[in-house]
Design a protein around this nucleic acid. Sequence first.
RNA 1: GGCGACGUGGCCGAGUGGUUAGGCAAGGGUCUGCAAAACCCUGGACCCGGGUUCGAUUCCCGGCGUCGCCUCCA
Length: 461
Amino acid sequence: MELYNTLDRAVTDFVPIHEGRVTVYVCGPTVQSSPHLGHGRSAVSFDVLRRYLEWSGYDVMFVRNVTDIDDKIIDRAKAAGTTTDEIARESFVAFSSAYRSLGNLEPTIEPRATDHVGEMIALVELLIDSGHAYKSDGDVYFAVRSFPSYGKLSRHNVDDLRSGERIEPDERKRDPLDFALWKAAKPGEPEWDSPWGKGRPGWHIECSAMSSKYLGQPFDIHTGGSDLIFPHHENEIAQSEAAHGIPMANYWLHNGMLNLSGEKMAKSTGHVVTLHEALERWDPIAVRLFYLRTHYRKPLEFSESALDDAAASLSRLRSFRRRADRFLEGDADAEAIERFREAMDRDLDTAGALAVVFDVVRAGNTVMDEGGDATGHVLAFDEMMDVLGLVGDLDGKGDVDVSQIAADFGVPGATIDDLVELRTTLRAEKDWARADALRDRLAAVGITIEDSADGSTWHRS
RNA sequence: GGCGACGUGGCCGAGUGGUUAGGCAAGGGUCUGCAAAACCCUGGACCCGGGUUCGAUUCCCGGCGUCGCCUCCA
């Protein structure tokens, strides 16, 4: 399998440190507000990575962190007159439920920053002792120029960065590029005891501490959004590698941004469509399909029509699977599986992989139209859909109230199946008017009926 | 200014030095009481200008355009 490694700026063969085993660290969210479609894209991209690795036979340790202490969380807690814990908890619940709706597997471990302050302090001490960090007025800073390969991930060099306009001079720093490992406590803010007095960890240090605790160093794959390459991941590398003298992670994968009206979706500007809004309006699996139609490293433009397109596309997949229930014993079509694997091996080309899925759908439909055995197609379909995680409720049967329709048609208490049966009878009697009226009534409550030579079936619209 | 990505048919979007991407939408047809679903057919795409090559959408150079990062960010 080949993966694009940001460190190399190239697609390279993936070779895990330990045969048969892969360690993955996903930069999870800072739980300060509601997740938006961009967060969902990142989560889905790397959930597919994980599913594919597992399908390929690897034992995957998948760690996704939760950063539950940071400046924004503090600001929001102050503004809302509540605690940072409360803000983080609410946001975490929102992220978890949205991620689950999108069909993402639970991480093997989901560590929280606030549970690992001790590990962070130990790491900061190590950095101070080795001369890579210094105390200043209750803060601790990482000395960027003490780490010669600083910039190797983002391909920045420290002198270019120095000329950047956005760096605010700060007399507590020896060099404007230095970044905080530890911040001295301020009144009314969360604080922890440390050798440098009360305070809290800086951003970046939690990922260095938690990744090495759970995955060791180096581990195989570190992932996140491309907007984290600099400074977040660059700083993680500096911390972890300066402290331990060995690489932090071998492969760095970054997903492309989700755009809205041509610009990156970002919570800081309010330029967002929240996952909650999107999942209200579109089937969660359609949203997942929308993500996977585009290669994970490319920018992806949000639009309503793109989501509608994905939803229509999904209904094709579901229609196929719905009619294929009879063909579940046997072997998957090996050629299709092989083509699928070739696509996925190419740096997770899910768009190419989906083309294989649709090819199988067409072939399978043709076979079924001709009354043949579609087992190979159906099993290949199921296997590929499972790897992509497009496995939500196929037809969402249930929770539709048809009691009024049943009463109106003179069969009080009838179920949807009963009503479909009734319509079959009406059709046999060539009572087209009532049969069509029943179909229309059911359509009005979201039930689509399909007639075939084998009888009628229904599904949620 | 520095670093980087991208520009494919009506729309979305893979891939490739010469051979079918795929989806959605559209038109025509088959099937069907009608509908839905399905299947078949149709529309010969690769930003512009150079270069390399027998041949480039695919490689190289330049231009134009869009976007990301340059300490809030998935």
